[in-house]
Design a binder for these strands. Sequence first.
DNA 1: TTGCCGCCTTGATGCAGATCAAGGCGCGAA
DNA 2: TTCGCGCCTTGATCTGCATCAAGGCGGCAA
Lengths: 245, 245
Amino acid sequence: MNLRLARTSCIECPIRHRAVCAECDDTELAVLEGIKSYVTVPKGGRIAEAGESLDHLSSVVSGCATVSKTLADGRRQMVGLLLPSDFIGRPGRATLSFDIEAATDVTLCRFQRRAFEAIIRSSPNVARRLLTMTLDELDVARDWQVLLGRLTARERVIHFLLSLVRREATETGAAHRSGPVRLELPLSREMIADYLGLTIETTSRQFTALRKDGLIETPTARTIVVPDLLNLMPEAMDEDGGPIA
Amino acid sequence: MNLRLARTSCIECPIRHRAVCAECDDTELAVLEGIKSYVTVPKGGRIAEAGESLDHLSSVVSGCATVSKTLADGRRQMVGLLLPSDFIGRPGRATLSFDIEAATDVTLCRFQRRAFEAIIRSSPNVARRLLTMTLDELDVARDWQVLLGRLTARERVIHFLLSLVRREATETGAAHRSGPVRLELPLSREMIADYLGLTIETTSRQFTALRKDGLIETPTARTIVVPDLLNLMPEAMDEDGGPIA
DNA sequence: TTGCCGCCTTGATGCAGATCAAGGCGCGAA
DNA sequence: TTCGCGCCTTGATCTGCATCAAGGCGGCAA
């Protein structure tokens, strides 16, 4: 998982390590280099809409974007959260099935779809790497299904916080040492509610309840401090009886 | 989508058309032929367990299997339903994250994992085909997230029935002509409840309600007749205002 | 034929989370 | 400094689904 360290240039454009660095050769890298470009989408901006055809695949360099669906009557469910190094787009497919929006300012590293697909066609390494990434996304989606189908509001909020902590830990490479953890939430309460399949009021009440129980502190609404991760963990156990890896 | 028609032998072993038929060459087919074997798992049997390491990848030839997670306290959520032509396993990954069980007697076409992965490594076609299949699964999982997060019990049951109808239609190649449709449910009420994130009682009551409303008939508990699909459809609309494709 | 056992249905009641409603707080603009 | 506007919190009430409980039905074995 420290592919990131393999080539320092990967930090600039995560796709280079996540999709291809592991075993790609220099030709592939050179081609990718030639077809990429950067764009920044302002907070609240639409990155893509369901049904729309995309002529770029991209990778999140910085910021936070959401993948969601809105029903005719306004009900909305988030189905994906895109953070740096996550991939956007469906190689081999021109259209998306969900809306993608910028939750904060988002910088993307984009690749022309046709050129990128040509690389996939010729290189088993790239296709294989994308397959692995997609399988990971599928696991995330399925764990999310369990959360939405069976967890209580309190458990959902705890899982959300833990997933952010875990995500941050793998970003920085830090092992989850004990001691207080500080989180800057990239999402508003409304977005968190859409993430968790709850209403904004219930979400807010759960944050309040966790604070009253001493499990978290909330210096500001968007800043969460977890004095001791272990206190939060026990409620997030799965069938193995252990906290999520 | 009529890859199935490309080679009749595909019917015998769906992986041949779903994973590789589209553009594979004869060498790849020959290798697959050499590493496959068939097994039948009886109804209720365990096909794989979360965390277990698998040395086969397989494809469902007949029957119905479920992908699910059970929490420590017994709460259970289904996250995948495997019907003929669906693929089991995670190329490049030795272990599963979810339990897979036979909902009916299930016949699998299995491939030795190492040999299959060797094919993936050498053939962009196979890797690309698997990527497409996995992206499709991801879309299904995300639509399922919307169902679990935001739909009412009644809407969930309707979606479930429509997804079976749609699935059956693509299997038989029949367009969704109007007129009555008959469905044999491959799942018990309890499994349907786990699929939909509901209790068995609520699920049963919703079937009763749909029957009282004249939207379905239930000659037996496992047999559903839908007199007119269009009556069922309107409640299953998404943001585009149209029924699911 | 009878009785058992799984599976399904139905009824009564309870409760978690939705809904409706009313502020509070912080921040940027005038 | 004050106003206005997002965003968040809190309270009161409602309700859809869960829970608890009791049969019904159909298939299979003795």
